[in-house]
Structures are given as C-alpha cells and as structure tokens.
Amino acid sequence: MSDLVLSARAEVAQRSFSGGRKYRWLPFWLLLPSLLVLLALQVYPTLYSIYLSTTRVRRGEFMHVGLANFERLLRTPSFLESLRTSLAYSVTYVLLTVSSGMMLALLLNRRFKFTGFYLVIIFIPWVISEVVAGTMWRWLFQPTYGLLQSWINMYMPFLGDRLYTTAGGALAIVVAAAVWRGLAFTTLLSLGALQTVPQEIVESASLDGANRFQRFFHVILPLIRPTVLVMVLLTSIQSINSVGLIVSITRGGPGGATRTAAYYLLQVGWEQGDFGTGAAISVILFAINVTLTIAYLSIIGRHRDW
C-alpha cells in the first residue's frame, strides 16, 4: 500500500490533509473494516459461487464438470421458459412502475393541497416486506373467498373468474403486487428529478404555446432523462433478482407459469439440492445484471453533457 498517494479534492483540503504525513495511512484504516466485511461476505461468496457452478454432485460424488452445467441449462426447456417468464415479468413491471411513477410525480409536483399526504400513503407499500405483501395479494385473489376475485366476478367478469389459478392471471397478480410495492420508489425518484427542473424553462415553453403533453415530452423528459434511466436500471435489476412475492403468492405456479429464473434458481439450487446447477443459474443472473449496468453506463457516458 506504499503507493497510496493522498491528494485532496480541493486546494483548501490539500493544506489540511496532506499536511501531516503522520496521517498518511488514515484513509486506509478508515476503509479497512468495510473492505474486510465486503471481501469476506460479498466478494468471496460470489467467487465461490462461480467455482461451484463448475461442479456437480451425482451419486454422492462431488465432480468438476467445467461448463457442463451451463450447457445443460441452456438445453433445459423449463429453464429457458423461466427466462422468458422473467423477461415478461420484468418488462411489464419496469414499464408500469416507471410510467405510473412519473405520472404520479407530475401530479404531485403541482403542489396542490395534501400532496405530502398522498406521497406518504403511496410510499407505505414500499416499507412492507415482500412476503407480507405477497400474503395480502394472495388473499385478495383467493379463488373462492378472495375479496377482489369476488368483485371481479360481480363487476368485471370479462377478467375471468379464476385469475389466481390461470397462467396469465397468476402472472398478472404477481406483477400487480410488485408494481403496488415498487411504485413508491419510482414516484419519489421522479419527483426528486422534477423538482430540479427549472420552473422558468417550463413556463417559457408554455408561453410558446406548448400544451401539457408537448411540455412533458419535449421539455421536461429530456431534462430528467438520467433519472429515468436510473429508474429503469434499478427496477430491472430489482425485478430480475426478486423472488419474495413469487414465493408468497404463487410459489411459481400454476404449472410453472410464474416461475422466473430467480425462482427457478431457488427451486433447483435449494429445494432440489442441486448446488452446481443453482450456482450456474446465479452466474447467469449476475451476468444479466452486469450487462444491464454496462449498457446503462455506456448510455450515460456517451451523454456526459446531460
């Protein structure tokens, strides 16, 4: 660590911080505890998982199989199906949470009375755990005794009388519960971004005769685009990795209709005890996350001037 060279962020700081050579090592000591914890409980397990993905246990014997787990997975129809389910789940979730979050933020940003109150109410689902939220939604759509299902039967029969136990219906319930929980996050982020938009720009646009939609799409949206991208990135990663709602609402059913890749990992890698294959799936999920982030960073990077 002898190459640790201090350079303060500002000239003022330089005077105070590089002054004492005796504190040369201070930043290192400050970082050390965090780094140790992260290395031990984040980095090491991940590397270990990557190693595990190249192993398999058959007939009680531990074997090194190279990339065979990956090859087999990519030939396994139920895994490919779970990837498609993940895609459908994530895309609908991201579209719905980001768009309705922005809409709510626009309304809240008009600062009528009670907006603070609305924000608090809309935010409440976010602090409720996925398992608890899942239990609530599951109970609302219970086929015979569920309140929402019985209302649907009475007032909106075109939606179907057995949502919870049909493939599309079950997925819709899971997505609805996820949006319900995730909406707070995108609303708050959008609101934060909207409040950085200078009021004069919007006003001058409206003086130029732009209507509300034109103002939003041509003036406001370009200004808050970085935030929109952050929201899309974070909600995508969230939806790809989360299993809590699926665990508590459908357990992947009916017939695997709501089994996302993350839930598939839980089922294969944990319940069925196939650690090698489970680890391989987790590596694939990790790769998807990294790809998304790199794509995001490259978009952001290309438009530094934002």
Partner: peptide, 17 residues
C-alpha cells in the same frame, strides 16, 4: 458494483461459511 450481485448468488457459499 457489489450491489449488482443478486442475493441469491451467495446463498450456498454463505451457508458453507
């Protein structure tokens, strides 16, 4: 970047530890 690691990835190694 560590935030991108899915919680699921580390479960079995953590169990081992």
């Amino acid at each position: 970047g560590l935030m991108m690691i899915p919680g699921l990835t580390n479960l079995v190694p953590l169990y081992r530890i």
